[in-house]
């Protein structure tokens, strides 16, 4: 491999430092013996122990996971359907308007999305709780799913769906037997994206959350206002690890799939 020039090395170092130094500090201080966040007093894992005693945090974590799971699932179903209509629906009346409306939430300020949802929930007399957060998160994450899925559908050879129809599938069974298995990786990454978005959303969640249902970001944010505690550092470190493991696994899986496809192709060529 070619050696990198000093310029490239410096920009890489600065870039990475800019991105990861804050997180690195946070991780280091989560192992700090002292309660004072800014004074290093030796290595300890006691804050992790205390964290798991803290019911408020555990409850919030549970709510967050629940909300993430359900909103990601609903968003994936709706987002995939929207992508399907946009890519395969042909020219129908109002198509341009529809596609614009699907993608608008991507650039809509979160505060506005949150506020309008809050107004809606009040208007229809819905008690705020886990349910309302799930609905709110579904609303804003489904457009991300539909972007991911439609980019896969565009590249998808349409004649495979036609072949399925030709062989006697109804449009619905052609979708489930042929299209869905083939776009599954995109649907899965859409789900993961929606899940992560829900996991770290603060703004919209704080509009939609009720007193009985606090998500982790809301909990962290409100406790930080009373002062940063090592417990929060520990909690954040755990979240960073989960996300990192997720990202690394995803990329390993992709790499393996590519390697397997290459091997198969090699095999096919050898067999002639």
């Amino acid at each position: 491999m070619r050696r990198m020039s000093w310029f490239n090395v410096t920009s890489l170092t600065f870039g990475l430092a800019f991105l990861y130094l804050p997180m690195l500090l946070l991780i280091i201080y989560s192992f700090n013996e002292s309660r004072l966040v800014t004074v290093w007093a030796g290595f300890s894992t006691k804050w992790y122990g205390e964290l798991f005693q803290n019911e408020a945090f555990l409850d919030a974590a549970l709510v967050t996971l629940k909300v993430g799971f359900f909103s990601a699932t609903v968003a994936t179903v709706l987002g995939t359907m929207a992508a399907w209509i946009l890519v395969r629906g042909g020219k129908f009346f109002g198509r341009t308007l529809f596609s614009g409306m699907i993608y608008a939430p991507l650039v809509m300020p979160e505060v506005i999305t949150g506020l309008s949802l809050l107004l809606l929930f009040i208007a229809i007399g819905m008690d705020r709780g886990v349910m309302t957060i799930v609905l709110a998160h579904t609303t804003f994450s489904m457009c991300y799913v539909s972007v991911v899925v439609s980019s896969r559908l565009v590249a998808f050879d349409k004649s495979m769906e036609e072949a399925a129809l030709d062989l006697g599938c109804t449009p619905a069974s052609a979708f489930f037997l042929v299209t869905l298995p083939l776009i599954a990786p995109a649907v899965l990454s859409g789900w993961l994206l929606a899940f992560t978005l829900s996991l770290d959303d603060l703004v919209i969640a704080s509009f939609a959350a009720g007193p009985s249902s606090t998500t982790l970001p809301i909990k962290i944010f409100s406790s930080v206002r009373l002062g940063v505690t090592p417990e929060i550092n520990a909690l954040s470190t755990i979240m960073i690890s989960i996300v990192a493991i997720g990202v690394i696994t995803a990329s390993l899986v992709t790499k393996q799939a590519i390697a397997r496809a290459k091997r198969d192709e090699q095999k096919a060529i050898q067999d002639g």
Binding site: M160, E162, A163, A164, L165, L167, C169, P171, A174
Partner: peptide, 17 residues
């Protein structure tokens, strides 16, 4: 298409991968 008594072999084969 799915109600027609025809079957087609596609120029691009369109096999299910």
């Amino acid at each position: 298409p799915n109600k027609r008594a025809t079957n087609m072999m596609f120029q691009s084969y369109a096999l299910f991968p």
